[in-house]
Design a protein around this nucleic acid. Structure first.
Lengths: 201, 201
DNA sequence: GCGGCCCGATCAATCGATCGATAGACCAGA
DNA sequence: TCTGGTCTATCGATCGATTGATCGGGCCGC
C-alpha cells in the first residue's frame, strides 16, 4: 500500500488535492507541472504515475465533482413531488456543497474551456443533467401556480448564478456557518421565484 | 495617423479588442502572445508598440472597464436619494453593460488573480468603490424599512453574483434584448431584497 | 532623411512530458 | 532461509516545443 509521504496522506490523494487548490487559485493554464509537483511533495516525473496528462487530471476532477453533485441531488429529490420542496432541497444541497468545497467548485465553474472537446462533452453533459433538475422543479412550480415569473428561463439562470456565486467568496472562517448560509439562500430562492416564504423555525 | 489594417481599424484598438476576446474565451494564461498577434493582424514584435507587457495590457483592460462602470454608476445615482430607485438604476446599468460587453466583463470577473500585486490593488480598489454603491443603497433601504432581509451582507453578495452571471451566458442573438433583460433583473432584484414590485409599464 | 510602424530572427526561460535507473516490498521455488 | 524475479514508487536528467520579450533593420509618408 502507498501510505508514505509526510503526513501519511497517499500520494495519489496529495496530487488530487494540490491540483484542486492550484487550479482554483491560479487557474489551469497558470499552474505549471512543477508547481503541482512541489505542492504534492513529488518530482514532476513522479506526478505522471498518478495522472496520464495534466488535462486529464483536470477533467477527472471536474467529472467526479459534478457526478457526485448530481448523484446527491438525485438521492435528495427521490420520491419528492412538491416543486417548492424540491427547490428548497436543491438550493440547500447546492449551497452547502459550494461552501464546503469552494475550491473544487471554482475549478468546475471556471475551467470548462481548458478542457479538450472530448472531455468538455462529458463534463457539460453531466452539468446539463444536473441543471435539468432545477428546470424541472421550476417548470412544475410554474405550472401549478406556486411560482410566478414572467421569464422562466432567465429566472432559472439568475437563480443558478446566485447560488454558484457562493464558491467565489465563501470562506470557512466567516461569521456565517454553512448550514445557516444554505438556509438563507433557500429563503432568497423562494423570493426570486415568487414562492411563499418558508415557515420560521 | 495609424489607420491602416484591413477594415480601417487602428492597430491599437485591434490589439485591445483581440485581447478582450481571447482573454475572455481562453483565459489570460491560455492566450499566447502569438495568438494575440494573429488575432490583431500584427507580428508578435509589433504588439509591443501598443503594450508594455502582456500583463499590463490585461491590467489596462480591467482598469478602464471598471472605471467606466464606476463613472457611469456615479452619474446615474447623482442626486438620487430613494434607495429603491438607486437599486433599480444600479441593476439596470450593471445588467445592460454586462449584456452589451460580456467578453470585457468576463475578463474583469475571472482574471483578477492573473494580475501582479500592484495592478491587483488598483483594480480591486475600483471594484470596491463600485460595490460600495450597492452596499449603501441596500443599507439605506434597510434602515428606512423599504428593504427586508435577515442577512444584509449575504444578500448583497447574492444580488451581485446574480447580476454578474449575465456576462457568462448572455449572447446578443438571444430571444431577450438587453433592455428587457435589464428590466427583468430589476424585478428580480426587488424580490430578493423584499422591496415592493415595480409598477407595470 | 527623419520618425512612426512594422517585421523576421532570435533570446533565455519555462512548458508538458519522457527517459532510464534505483530502491524497496512482495512472492515463488529451492 | 536464501535467491531470483516482478511490481510499485520514486527520481534526476533531459527532450522538443513554446513561452514572453528583445533587437536590429526595413518600409513609407512627410
Amino acid at each position: 500500500m502507498a501510505v508514505t509521504g509526510p503526513g501519511g496522506t497517499p500520494a495519489r490523494e496529495r496530487v488530487h488535492r494540490a491540483a484542486v487548490r492550484l487550479f482554483a487559485t491560479k487557474g489551469f493554464h497558470g499552474t505549471g507541472i512543477r508547481d503541482l509537483a512541489k505542492a504534492a511533495n513529488l518530482s514532476s516525473a513522479s506526478l505522471y504515475h498518478y495522472m496520464p496528462t495534466k488535462e486529464r487530471l483536470l477533467a477527472d476532477i471536474m467529472r467526479s465533482s459534478l457526478q457526485s453533485l448530481l448523484d446527491a441531488a438525485l438521492a435528495e429529490l427521490d420520491g419528492l413531488d412538491d416543486p417548492v420542496e424540491r427547490l428548497d432541497r436543491l438550493v440547500v444541497l447546492h449551497v452547502t456543497r459550494h461552501a464546503r468545497e469552494p475550491m473544487r467548485t471554482r475549478v468546475v465553474d471556471n475551467e470548462v474551456d481548458a478542457l479538450t472537446p472530448a472531455s468538455r462533452r462529458d463534463v457539460v453533459g453531466i452539468r446539463d443533467a444536473y441543471e435539468k433538475l432545477w428546470s424541472d422543479a421550476l417548470d412544475d412550480g410554474l405550472r401549478s401556480g406556486v411560482f410566478t415569473t414572467t421569464r422562466p428561463a432567465t429566472t432559472r439562470l439568475a437563480l443558478l448564478d446566485m447560488c454558484n456565486g457562493v464558491a467565489r467568496w465563501f470562506s470557512p472562517g466567516g461569521e456565517l456557518g454553512r448550514n445557516d448560509l444554505a438556509e438563507h439562500y433557500a429563503d432568497l430562492a423562494r423570493r426570486l421565484v415568487g414562492a411563499p416564504p418558508r415557515p420560521p423555525r
